[in-house]
Nucleic acid binder design. Structure first.
Length: 295
DNA sequence: ATCCAGGAGGGCC
DNA sequence: GGCCCTCATGGA
């Protein structure tokens, strides 16, 4: 991966296994806006990034080389060799080939723990555009203004401290519905120190999972998403309605319970579960694989 | 209009 | 422990 800095921008010249649109649109993050084809604005921590892919070059606008090294390299998981990961996955299971070939540019982001936790609590029983909308509202109301791009203002996602003073009623007012008390519980467990991203990261998968599900509104699926997308637990395999259908179709050829699918993934994909899940999920969702069609 | 959404809690048996 | 219903909101 060759990187150059020029005119206050950073250019990734030989981006391997990295397609900006695929990485952002695969359902792992919600705090971004598409400007046009392969042209996005995203928010991470208190940083705003305008990122665009053009003629095989990825441009990070208004970014210093230091900021790239300190923040974006880690965020986009660019130290991780996805060529090797895909090779490994393919060796253990050639059924993944189609999904990986089509979704070859997906990278698993290393997102902020707190934002990821709240975002995936919101995600339950909601479609991705709605999740994005609520994340935007929370950020605008309780986060901080961080800049404007093409006429649109962007705000950082509120920190635990910034949400601590927000009442339950105010959370309801953000259209969070029945998730409001869940968010409230998560915020206060984080503020009280009962839940800590740094501590979770140091735990093994089982401890980490157990700790996360002690938060109201966090079950197995949300815990696995938080582990995979913000705590570096790449073996996590979130099982939602989509992945359930996809795995049932591709591997079971019958209906299966979620627990059965989790156990299968752990056994079959092992340490690489999270990557397999992302390729399968995004591919299956884009192609409406396994979607129950009315006859 | 009716159904469903990257689920999880709670009650019932 | 498993099954079933419900939760608030918006889009198809």
């Amino acid at each position: 991966m060759k990187v150059e800095a020029k005119d206050n921008n950073v250019y990734i010249l030989e981006a391997e296994d990295f397609v900006v649109s695929q990485t952002l649109e695969c359902g792992q993050c919600f705090h971004f806006k598409k400007l046009s084809e392969n042209d996005y604005v995203l928010v991470h921590l208190n940083k705003l990034l305008h990122i665009k892919e053009e003629d095989g070059v990825i441009i990070l606008f208004d970014t210093s080389p230091e900021e790239y090294e300190d923040i974006w390299k880690k965020y986009f998981d660019l130290d991780n060799d996805y060529g090797k990961i895909k090779e490994h996955l393919l060796n253990m299971d050639d059924k993944l080939k189609t999904a990986m070939d089509e979704m070859y540019g997906v990278r698993i982001l290393n997102q902020d723990f707190f934002e990821t936790l709240i975002s995936f609590i919101i995600s339950q029983n909601k479609q991705i555009p709605h999740i994005k909308q609520i994340v935007a509202v929370l950020s605008e109301k309780y986060g901080r203004y961080i800049g404007e791009i093409q006429g649109e203002q962007f705000f950082s996602f509120p920190t635990p401290k910034e949400l601590e003073k927000v009442s339950l009623d105010e959370l309801y007012a953000c259209k969070t519905g029945f998730r409001a008390p869940y968010i409230y519980d998560a915020v206060h467990k984080v503020c009280d120190g009962e839940i800590s991203g740094t501590e979770l990261m140091a735990m093994d998968d089982v401890q980490c999972h157990d700790s996360l599900v002690s938060i109201k509104g966090v079950g197995d699926k949300v815990a696995n998403c938080v582990m995979l997308f913000s705590l570096g637990k790449r073996s996590s395999f979130p099982v939602d309605v989509w992945i359930k259908r996809i795995v049932e179709n591709m591997y079971f050829e019958r209906e299966a319970k979620k627990e059965e699918i989790s156990a299968f993934a752990k056994e079959h994909f092992g340490e690489y579960g999270g990557y397999a899940q992302q390729y399968l999920f995004y591919y299956g969702r884009e192609n409406k694989l396994g979607k129950i069609t009315k006859q």
